[in-house]
Amino acid sequence: MADLPTVRWGIIATGMICEWFVTDVLKPDWPEKRANHTIQAIGSSSLEKCQKFAEKYVAPAKPTVQPTLYGSYQEVYDDANVDCIYIGTPHGFHKKNCLDAIKAGKNVLCEKAFALNAKEAEEVFTAAKEKGVFVMEAMWTRFFPLMKTLQKMLHEEKKLGTIYRTFSDFGLDFDIPNLPDDSRYKDPTLGAGSLLDIGIYTLTWGLTTLSDKVGDEAEEPEVASTQSIAHGVDLSSQVLLHYRSTGRQGICTSTTNEPQCKPFTRIEGSKGRILVDAEAPSLPTRFTFYPKDGGKEEVYTFESPGRGFYWEADAVALDLQAGRKQNATMPWAETMRVMRIMDGVRKRGGARFPVDDW
């Protein structure tokens, strides 16, 4: 393990997503381990929150290096021993958190959705380019072995032959109208609504299964969409992707009115269909191929010792070791493409954030 790259992480915030990330990267039994990870520092709005977080989620792993705990984010950015900042705050804080970290010369892995809109995302990437630091959107699902295997089968091996359509749905039952006004699921200043929180996953399934290109190399699909709005946020979003060059279509939906349906994604082609299933679209665990000729179905199952955050963490480590400023799976141009699509959905549907200039 000594010859593997090591990343010393600075964790920004102490919520659930940070809990998942920290417990995952500290697990010793990763499959095909490609990097070492240290939780070097943790920052929160209070030192007490950091202490409770470290006691509950770091201490059980018995790491050789104990994290430095801070009652602010800025102290994490300024810590000379931190290599990369992991940002797990609500969407509405991502731009500021990223810019503050970049100003301090830190590399950044920022949770999805990367920003509230494409304009904010562009500001962050411009700052990163000027400072010469690595930045990546933490769209962890794209790094799962299941996703890599599925994409290879679809786009290289042509398992489905000609791909026709992808259906993908993500549902949660949050009852947004009855949540407190300051809830991150209800407050527009925090990027509330189904689209940025869970719709981004179904959009990802559509984009990755209908084409093998990302970023500047990818075709911009035509997009039609609708949203159901209450209290200024979308309770549900329906996005239709149309690839003019191939005729392929993606139907990508999200809702906070109904629990998740299973399987959550169906990909149709001339040789059959593939159904993807799991606890949620963000955590795919298996897919099944059903051949159109009536042959035997094929089940592909993928296991991991945690939720799967270590695959993206390892990818960051390898990029930093190589001196790269972007990741090939999730380059800046791909984040911008997704943000532009979501901006268009919100413009048409009416889910406007205070920072939007339309």
Rank of each mutant, 00 (worst) to 15 (best):
E298D: 12
P305L: 12
K296G: 01
K262S: 14
F264A: 07
G294M: 13
A230D: 04
T265S: 15
L283F: 12
T285K: 13
H231P: 01
V299D: 04
E279I: 13
G308A: 08
T255F: 08
P259R: 03
D293I: 00
R266D: 01
H231R: 13
P284C: 06
Q238S: 11
Y290Q: 11
P259L: 02
G250F: 02
E258P: 05
L240G: 02
F309E: 07
F264R: 11
S270T: 14
E258W: 10
G250M: 06
S245Y: 08
A313W: 04
G247L: 10
D293F: 03
P281I: 04
P221I: 10
I251F: 12
P291D: 09
R248T: 00
Y310H: 14
A280V: 11
A280G: 05
E222P: 03
E258L: 15
R244G: 01
Q227W: 00
N257K: 15
V276M: 04
G306H: 07
T288M: 12
Y300T: 01
A278C: 05
G247W: 09
H242V: 08
L240T: 14
E298C: 07
G272F: 06
G232L: 10
L241A: 04
F289N: 02
Y310W: 07
G306Q: 14
I267G: 09
E279W: 04
R273M: 14
R307A: 00
S228H: 11
Y300S: 08
P221E: 03
G306D: 11
E279Y: 06
R307D: 06
R286L: 12
P305H: 12
Q238F: 11
V233P: 08
S236Y: 03
H242S: 12
K271D: 02
R273I: 04
P305T: 04
P259M: 01
Q249R: 13
Y243S: 01
A230E: 06
P221Y: 10
Y290C: 06
S225I: 05
S304M: 15
P305N: 12
Y300F: 15
C261K: 15
G306F: 07
E312G: 02
K292V: 10
E258M: 14
I229W: 02
F264L: 10
Y310L: 05
Q249S: 10
G295Q: 09
Q238E: 12
G308P: 09
N257C: 14
F302I: 01
G272T: 07
G269F: 02
F264K: 11
